[in-house]
C-alpha cells in the first residue's frame, strides 16, 4: 500500500469488524490483514488499548478443549466508531478535493 495507516484508522478498522460480530484475535487479524498491511506488528496492543478505554470487552468461550477469547464492541466503542467514521469522511473529502 502506498499510504500509511494512522493510529485512528486501525482503531476504526478493528471496531467496524467487531460492529458486525464478535471475533477472536486470530480471525480479527485475518479480516484486517485482507485490507491493510499490518505485518511486523500485531493487533494485541490495539485491542488492549481499546479494551482499557472501555471500547470493547472480552469473554472466553471454550473451543476444542481450550478457550477462545472473544472481543465484543461496547456502547462506548460504537460511539468511538461513529466519531472515527465522521473523521474519516471529512479527511477523505478534503483529500479528494485536492487530488481530483
Amino acid at each position: 500500500m502506498v499510504y500509511q495507516l494512522s493510529a485512528g484508522m486501525l482503531d476504526a478498522c478493528v471496531l467496524s469488524v467487531l460492529e458486525k460480530e464478535d471475533a477472536y484475535g486470530y480471525i480479527l487479524t485475518q479480516n484486517i490483514k485482507n485490507v491493510v498491511d499490518i505485518s511486523e506488528s500485531s493487533l494485541y496492543p490495539i485491542l488492549r488499548r481499546l479494551q482499557s478505554d472501555g471500547c470493547l470487552i472480552t469473554y472466553d468461550q471454550p473451543f476444542a478443549g481450550r478457550n477462545r477469547r472473544y472481543y465484543r464492541i461496547t456502547e462506548l466503542g460504537t460511539k468511538r466508531l461513529d466519531y472515527l467514521r465522521k473523521g474519516w469522511d471529512e479527511y477523505k473529502t478534503c483529500i479528494d478535493k485536492v487530488i481530483y
Binding site: 486470530y26 511486523e40 500485531s42
Partner: peptide
Amino acid sequence: DNIMQYYIEYFEEAGPANVDKVIAELG
C-alpha cells in the same frame, strides 16, 4: 498472562502448519 494468552491462542488458531508464517508475521 494476558499477552501470553493472546499469542498462545494466536498460534493455536493458525494451526501447526502455519507456525513459520506466524513467526515471520510477529517478528
